[in-house]
């Protein structure tokens, strides 16, 4: 455990505290979006507006998670792999397990920070009220709902060049956010696009957060949807890792 704590401290220092741009994209951008959209978009008055303030907060928390997982995890893992850190760790008795858990923990921690920041903004700027039970529920959804995205980020870190990864991250993050209804309601999109959006992991997670915020009953289809994505992403990750091991670590790491 001590080794893991040390690894976590080391990674937080280099990846979060001394990396302002990463903080900006994962925390400040979703917060900025929240303020911009809730103050600029005309979504009606009274209860409708209140509901939008609540649900959009949830959407931006999920969006922050997507950025952290797809852009953050993928970029960090790729960069560390290119520099030889993962290869070095694999040559040590401790191995790379602590490192991977630490990177994933940082991603989740940052998402929790996003929850706090967005929660404060929603509460004090838009007068949104929520209970501790709702916060706890959202925390749980974030923890589970982010797993497929983190695994996606892990897989994307295997792209050969940083340039390819950068293009792919943008091509995945923004369409994923838009199509699954994180930026604006999914109902405003054409039906064929809605059909795609409604099977994405972010859609399921967003639905669960939205229903929690609105005190509605959770839909089992959303839970099953996330579980299915977790199973799919774990299976693909296992296949890729096994293929890499067969090839030889130094080839895939070099």
């Amino acid at each position: 455990m001590t080794k893991f704590i040390r690894q976590l401290k080391f990674d937080i220092l280099r990846i979060v505290i001394r990396n302002k741009s990463f903080l900006f994209f994962t925390l400040l951008m979703p917060a900025g979006f929240y303020l911009l959209f809730t103050k600029v978009m005309d979504v009606g008055n009274g209860p409708e507006l209140r509901q939008f303030y609540m649900t959009y907060m949830g959407s931006m928390i999920i969006y922050s998670g997507v950025i952290g997982a797809v852009m953050g995890v993928a970029t960090i893992l790729k960069s560390d792999r290119d520099k030889g850190l993962t290869l070095f760790l694999q040559m040590t008795p401790t191995g790379s397990k602590n490192y991977y858990i630490s990177i994933y923990a940082i991603t989740v921690l940052l998402n929790l920070c996003a929850l706090v920041i967005l929660g404060i903004l929603a509460r004090f700027v838009n007068n949104v009220e929520f209970s501790l039970k709702q916060v706890a529920m959202i925390l749980l959804i974030i923890l589970i709902g982010q797993i497929p995205m983190i695994l996606l980020g892990t897989l994307m870190s295997n792209f050969k060049t940083q340039e390819t990864l950068s293009v792919a991250s943008n091509l995945i993050t923004f369409p994923l956010a838009i199509i699954s209804g994180l930026w604006w309601p999914i109902s405003t999109m054409p039906s064929w696009l809605q059909a795609i959006g409604k099977v994405l992991p972010t859609y399921f997670a967003n639905n669960l957060v939205e229903k929690t915020m609105l005190h509605s009953e959770l839909d089992l289809r959303d839970i099953y949807g996330i579980i299915a994505w977790i199973v799919i992403m774990i299976s693909i990750t296992v296949i890729v890792v096994k293929a890499q091991q067969k090839k030889g670590l130094s080839i895939s790491e070099a």
């Binding site: 690894q7 220092l13 280099r14 040590t92």
Partner: peptide, 15 residues
Amino acid sequence: SNVRIEEFLEEVATQ
């Protein structure tokens, strides 16, 4: 990136 010599070597020793 963002790591000093001493911090890096301490991280190595941890392993």
